[in-house]
Design a protein around this nucleic acid. Structure first.
Lengths: 114, 114
DNA sequence: CTGACATTTCGATATTATTCGAAATAAGGA
DNA sequence: TCCTTATTTCGAATAATATCGAAATGTCAG
C-alpha cells in the first residue's frame, strides 16, 4: 500500500457518519446492504449518505453492485487489511513491546511465516 | 474504544505529514524521537511539525516526555491496537470470509481465546 | 410509455483544517 | 544573570470538507 492510498482510506473513515457506515458494512458481511437501508439505519438524508458512500468508495473501502433497483454496498475486507498492515509496518523495530495479544504482534508473526 | 475517539485517531492519521510521522515513531520503537529530529527527517518547519504533533497527541496516538532540552515523542502502541480492534469489531458477522491471513481473522481468533 | 421507486448529482452555504513566519516559553551552561 | 538551544503558541491567509433540498438519472412493473 502507498502512503496516499492510506491517507485517502484514513480520511474516509475519519468522519462520524462514514465510520458508522463502514462498521455497519464490516459487520454485515458478504451480503452487504442497500443504500436506502443504510440511510434509514443511520438516520441521514439520502443525498448526504450518497456523498459519504462515494467517499468510501473512492478510498477503496467499499464495493458497490447493482441488484434490481437497489445498489448494494459491501466492505472491502482486503483493503481494510492492507490499511492495518500499513499502519503497523515494521512495528516496534522488531522488539516485542507492543503489548501482549496486540494486533501489532499477530501481524508481525504473520509476516514472518508468510 | 468509543466512536469519537476512533474518529479523532483516524483524522489525526489522515494527513500526509502526520501519517509519515506516526509511522516513523511506530518504527522507532520505545526509544522514540525528539521533535527537532523529526522535523529534520520530514523536512517541514518546526512550527508546522509542532501543530501535527499536538494533533496526534490530542488523538492519543503519541506520548511525549521531556528529556533535558528535548521533547521525546513515542507511538502509543496500545492506542493503535485499540483503533485497529475497533475497526474490525464483529468483522464479517463471524464468517471466515475476510481473506486468509487477514488481520480480521487473527483478531477474531484472539477475541475467542481472550 | 407512464408512473413509482431507488439513488445520485448539483449548488450554495457553513464549518473545519493546513501552513509557516514571528514571537513567546522553557531548560541548561558559562 | 545572560546566552544558546529546543520547542510551542499566535495570527492570518488559504484550502478542503460537510450538509441537505431540489432536480436529474436509472430501473422495473403494468
Amino acid at each position: 500500500m502507498q502512503a496516499d492510498a492510506a491517507i485517502n482510506a484514513l480520511g474516509a473513515l475519519a468522519q462520524e457518519h462514514r465510520l458508522a457506515l463502514f462498521r455497519l458494512l464490516v459487520q454485515a458481511g458478504e451480503r452487504g446492504l442497500a443504500a436506502g437501508a443504510i440511510a434509514k439505519k443511520l438516520g441521514i438524508p439520502n443525498s448526504s449518505l450518497s456523498f459519504h458512500l462515494s467517499q468510501l468508495r473512492a478510498a477503496g473501502l467499499v464495493l458497490q453492485e447493482r441488484q434490481h433497483r437497489s445498489i448494494i454496498y459491501r466492505a472491502n475486507y482486503p483493503a481494510m487489511n492492507a490499511l492495518v498492515a500499513y499502519l503497523m509496518e515494521n512495528c516496534c523495530a522488531g522488539a516485542a513491546d507492543c503489548g501482549a495479544g496486540s494486533a501489532c504482534e499477530t501481524l508481525a508473526a504473520e509476516r514472518k511465516s508468510a
